[in-house]
């Protein structure tokens, strides 16, 4: 073998690959719309301090219709609520809450669900039976019943919501991962890794998990949308983030009694949450479409 310097080309950086997959998404109109909506809300949340015309918790002028001028200049574009807080500013700051706790809860749920799913699917046997049974038990609770009971018992706070979401979603994630692993574990490259004596954790983490990422990313988008709904519902039921900080569900709950007379107070937060969830759902659909084509 002649001695020559051999350039082993670098692996593409993961950022580059992420950009490439976004480029792929361009082919799905639905996915692009979803991405645009999500990005819009992310930007709103990031720059809420700059964008919001008023402080979110300042009580200025109660029960004002959209488009009214504020006493000290500026305008209540979306009106104010029953105690005089600017709805637009509250929606913007509320986006921040949702986009912090939603992804956080989802990530927590995944970091519990993925190892469980890998273990159940790859190790199998008793491990699988025990994990699957636990998952079945938790999944047999109607989700909201579970949330209501958990939150009623441990109290409403941001951390508790994250805990509750993790507890309630991890089993579903586990099932999906398990299914994917059952399919992937009979691939020949896994077999090859086994025949060279790789330890099980490495097979799960390096050989199997990366190949499951496609469906998992799609699932994560859908789940994120659902977690946002959940946070909203809890807020709506009065079990969400404690007031006065703005929370979309809570805003609707506080004002819905007056919705007959002042529909704008509940309407705009409804539109906000629906559009964000729609964004994630469309994005998931687009990703799925693109990944199936490849």
């Amino acid at each position: 073998m002649s001695e020559q310097t051999i350039e082993i080309p670098r692996r593409e950086s993961s950022i580059l690959r992420a950009i490439k997959s976004v480029a792929l998404l361009r082919e799905s109109a639905v996915g692009m719309v979803g991405l645009a909506i999500v990005l819009f809300w992310v930007l709103v949340a990031l720059f809420a301090d700059l964008l919001a015309p008023f402080p979110p918790n300042a009580t200025i002028m109660p029960l004002v219709m959209p488009g009214t001028e504020a006493p000290d200049g500026g305008m209540f574009l979306l009106g104010t609520d029953h105690i005089g807080r600017d709805i637009l500013s509250r929606i913007m700051h509320g986006a921040r809450q949702v986009l912090i706790y939603g992804p956080l809860a989802t990530v927590c749920a995944y970091s519990v669900g993925i190892p469980m799913g890998l273990a159940a699917g790859y190790v199998g046997g008793l491990t699988d039976e025990v994990l699957s049974f636990i998952a079945n038990v938790i999944l047999s609770f109607p989700v909201l019943v579970l949330y209501v009971i958990i939150i009623a018992t441990i109290g409403a706070s941001a951390v508790n919501i994250v805990i509750a979401v993790t507890f309630a979603s991890a089993p579903g994630i586990m099932r999906i991962v398990r299914g994917l692993v059952l399919d992937l574990r009979s691939r020949e490259y896994v077999f090859a890794a086994q025949t060279r004596g790789e330890p099980p954790w490495r097979i799960m983490a390096v050989e199997i998990l990366p190949n499951a990422r496609g469906p998992l990313i799609v699932d994560a988008c859908l789940r994120l949308g659902y977690v946002i709904i959940t946070i909203g519902v809890l807020g709506f039921l009065g079990l969400g983030l404690p007031p006065p900080d703005p929370d979309w569900g809570g805003m609707i709950n506080e004002t819905r009694q007056m919705a007959m007379a002042f529909p704008h107070m509940a309407l705009f937060p409804c539109l906000a949450i629906s559009s964000l969830v729609l964004g994630f759902n469309l994005l998931a659909d687009g990703l799925r479409e693109v990944s199936l084509r490849d």
């Binding site: 490259y189 090859a192 050989e207 990366p210 190949n211």
Partner: peptide, 14 residues
């Protein structure tokens, strides 16, 4: 060591 049958799954696509 072993050489496998199915070219589509013998290498890890990731």
């Amino acid at each position: 060591q072993m050489v496998f049958q199915n070219p589509f799954d013998t290498l890890n696509p990731s």
